[in-house]
């Protein structure tokens, strides 16, 4: 039987329990964060666009920013019974879509996203167990809550299991 797929859009986040696959398609400079609590097979995925909610005017969508999406994701998982101590994180994305455009601040947003996500996870004392970031290509993520593994698909850079 086909496992239920839950789609996580751009600037969106979802939490679910196995059996389910959380997917996020076409991640460029955005960052996909997955958190997993193995004992109850609870997982969460966020697809953030920007590092910091403090610097923008419109703060209506907390799932868009690293420093709000990650804590929200954790809270939702804890409400479902996950224990923070055992939660592990994986991060993917943060690409630099135009390889030739050298890293001016405007163009290395992917890098800044990744840095911010790492900083937030560290503050929350959540360990990053796998990472596939940077490069200049898009990624699609398929997070299987049964195994906790994330399949990372790309167009020209193969497929990885994290």
């Amino acid at each position: 039987m086909e496992v239920h797929e839950i789609h996580v859009g751009m600037a969106d986040m979802k939490v679910a329990r196995s059996p389910a696959i959380l997917t996020s398609l076409g991640i460029g400079s955005c960052v996909g964060i997955v958190l997993y609590y193995p004992r109850l097979k609870i997982g969460g995925m966020a697809h953030i666009m920007l590092p910091d909610i403090e610097v923008v005017r419109n703060k209506s969508n907390r799932a868009k920013f690293a420093n709000t999406a990650v804590p929200d994701l954790l809270r939702e998982m804890e409400q479902m019974g996950a224990e923070k101590l055992m939660i592990k994180a994986k991060i993917m994305g943060g690409a630099h879509m135009f390889c030739f455009a050298k890293s001016s601040t405007v163009f290395n947003i992917g890098e800044r996203n990744v840095e911010k996500v790492k900083q937030i996870l560290q503050e929350l004392r959540i360990k990053i167990v796998a990472e596939d970031t940077g490069g200049c290509y898009g990624r699609s993520l398929f997070f299987d809550l049964d195994t906790g593994l994330v399949r990372v698909r790309t167009i020209a850079h193969g497929e990885k299991i994290l």
């Binding site: 460029g28 955005c30 920007l50 405007v106 699609s140």
Partner: peptide
């Protein structure tokens, strides 16, 4: 011009990400 051969979503998020700081 810049040419990009990749997923539409990855391309678009890159273009819109700066825009996203000023407008929804």
């Amino acid at each position: 011009p810049s040419i990009v051969i990749d997923m539409a979503g990855a391309l678009v998020d890159y273009i819109l990400i700066e825009l996203a700081t000023v407008t929804e």
